[in-house]
């Protein structure tokens, strides 16, 4: 059954809108089917479900690592299926992603990793050096700026990934199991960072199966089961 479209917050144009979206890898059966929801600007949501439910696949559609096999995905009011390939990088720069496996560049220092999106956006180092240092201090890595990722703890890596994801002040922040490899106190500390970012205006969508974290945050939840959206709303 096609789920009811979930317009989670009324008013402004949604940052993300899915309408009848399906996704498959190659010729495999659909990983996601008939997904319909919207995320309003400045909202904060969790997306949850059992392993293999399609949480990471749904995030991939939003951060433009995959295309839907049918249906329509709109980002910032633009249907991504008609966005020219040359415009995709600009769209990606408006999205901050924290990957489940963090994906830090091991040959670059903490500072270089955090500054990467600004460098890619061709910003002058002189214009952002101070901001990056401030951000790293904010996530508790002020004393590790010169370190290589291999020397960081799991929590430090996760916080560096967060710093990299938000340094370009994205319109939306996506996090895939951001607390999967850290202990509970660290998970709460990371959650506080997300809440703080959201307070500054960033739309946040976190994929997690950590019920405790969701209960603590008390934010609206989208629930996926077998590739279908079965619950949502605030």
């Amino acid at each position: 059954m096609r789920p009811e479209a979930l317009l989670l917050e009324a008013g402004a144009e949604p940052v993300v809108r899915f309408d009848g979206v399906a996704m498959r890898y190659g010729r495999a059966p659909e990983t996601l089917s008939d997904i319909a929801f919207s995320l309003a600007p400045g909202s904060f949501h969790f997306i949850t479900g059992p392993s293999g439910a399609g949480k990471s696949s749904l995030l991939k559609l939003i951060y433009l690592a995959h295309r839907p096999s049918r249906g329509s995905v709109e980002l910032f009011g633009r249907d991504v299926s008609v966005v020219a390939e040359r415009d995709m990088p600009m769209l990606r720069r408006r999205i901050g992603v924290i990957f489940q496996d963090v994906r830090l560049l091991e040959h670059l220092s903490v500072f270089d990793n955090a500054a990467l999106p600004l460098r890619i956006a061709n910003r002058k180092p002189a214009a952002y050096r101070g901001d990056v240092a401030e951000l790293l201090a904010w996530v508790g890595l002020g004393e590790r700026m010169h370190a290589l990722p291999a020397t960081l703890s799991g929590g430090e890596k996760q916080r560096l990934a967060i710093a990299r994801a938000v340094v370009g002040r994205p319109d939306i922040l996506l996090a895939d199991e951001p607390t999967g490899n850290v202990d509970h106190p660290m998970a709460l500390r990371i959650l506080r960072l997300f809440v703080e970012l959201n307070r500054l205006g960033t739309t946040v969508l976190i994929a997690t199966h950590d019920e405790e974290l969701m209960a603590h945050a008390r934010r609206p939840v989208l629930r996926l089961e077998g590739g279908r959206l079965t619950e949502g709303g605030s």
Partner: peptide, 17 residues
């Protein structure tokens, strides 16, 4: 080791050989 942001120079985007 701490780093002075004002003296920071971007590292190479690709890993060394």
């Amino acid at each position: 080791m701490s780093l002075d942001p004002q003296r920071w120079k971007p590292g190479p985007l690709l890993p060394a050989a």
